[in-house]
């Protein structure tokens, strides 16, 4: 489990990126949302131990600080960011020289993932298109089978078919004791995948909840008529979209875009309070 305990992070330039973030992130697939510059990538870096806060207790994995960069913690985490570059020209070499550090690495799963994407592990990554390179990296990251997998914009640059394959891979291969945090702006790529939602706004964590708690407390309504008792209401292309309190009678799917917009509006505190009350 990832524990964030009053996490603050400030760049050397003095810019305060993350403010007082507290959350317990349990196994499952979590969506991390936030505007540009909200601190999503910095938060993922801290969880992976690439950056560290002022005190060691502010970010821990299974009660061990990530800032210590101990092998027992690092072997549980893998971070794949948009600009990451693998040190070898082929995935086969990654498997040979890098994978031995990861005790749960699954060579069969890597072969399966690569074949699903139609990638030969011996082909040079340098000759791949951006999308194919991304697919190769994702296939490898999933095969490491780390307890915690942090993915920063994993669907960026993927074509529609590849996104479908990735979605299938994620839902099939992620086990119950794995924690996956996906930071993305293209939420609809992974619409029905998430167990939890983390929303950052200007460096503050405004929501960290399980999806079922959200749908238990809130309903996402879409109508041609204005909606009464809405906690948040917006109009888009002639239709009214609203978040209304759920008394347990409404069974609606979570609308992440609407939730995100609501959490970045003045109604933020009402929405979060309603969700908290439903815990």
């Amino acid at each position: 489990m990832i524990n964030l305990n009053h996490l603050n992070y400030c760049y050397r330039s003095g810019v305060n990126v993350l403010h007082d973030i507290t959350a317990e992130i349990e196994p499952g697939i979590h969506l991390l949302m936030g505007e540009n510059g909200a601190g999503k990538t910095t938060l993922l870096h801290i969880m992976a131990g690439l950056r560290y806060p002022r005190t060691a207790t502010e970010c821990t994995i299974d009660d061990v600080s990530t800032s210590l960069r101990l092998p027992s913690v690092l072997s549980k985490v893998f971070l794949l960011t948009d600009d990451m570059v693998f040190p070898y020209p082929t995935i086969a070499e990654m498997e040979r020289y890098h994978a031995p550090f990861y005790p749960n690495f699954d060579a069969a799963l890597l072969a399966e993932n690569l074949s699903e994407f139609g990638i030969n592990p011996r082909d040079s990554i340098n000759n791949f298109s951006l999308g194919t390179r991304k697919k190769a990296y994702l296939a490898y990251a999933l095969a490491l089978r780390t307890d915690i997998l942090l993915l920063d914009e994993p669907a960026n640059g993927l074509d529609i078919d590849s996104k479908t394959v990735l979605l299938r891979m994620l839902s099939r291969n992620i086990t119950d004791n794995q924690t996956v945090i996906i930071s993305t702006h293209t939420i609809w790529d992974f619409q029905n995948l998430f167990d939890g939602v983390l929303v950052l706004s200007q460096g503050r964590l405004v929501l960290a909840e399980k999806v079922w708690t959200i749908v238990k407390s809130l309903a996402f309504v879409n109508s041609l008529e204005p909606i009464s008792n809405a906690l948040y209401l917006t109009q888009n292309m002639g239709r009214f979209q609203a978040i209304v309190p759920n008394d347990g009678t409404l069974d609606t799917a979570i609308d992440y875009v609407l939730l995100y917009t609501a959490l970045h509006s003045p109604q933020q505190s009402i929405i979060t309070q309603t969700v908290k009350n439903a815990r």
Binding site: A48, G49, L50, R69, L70, P71, S72, V73, L74, S75, V77, F78, L79, T81, D83, M84, V85, F86, P87, H98, F101, Y102
Partner: peptide, 14 residues
């Protein structure tokens, strides 16, 4: 090596 520092830091070794 260019841009491989993150993956090097992530290697589970002391």
């Amino acid at each position: 090596r260019k841009q491989t520092r993150p993956i090097e830091t992530l290697i589970p070794a002391r």
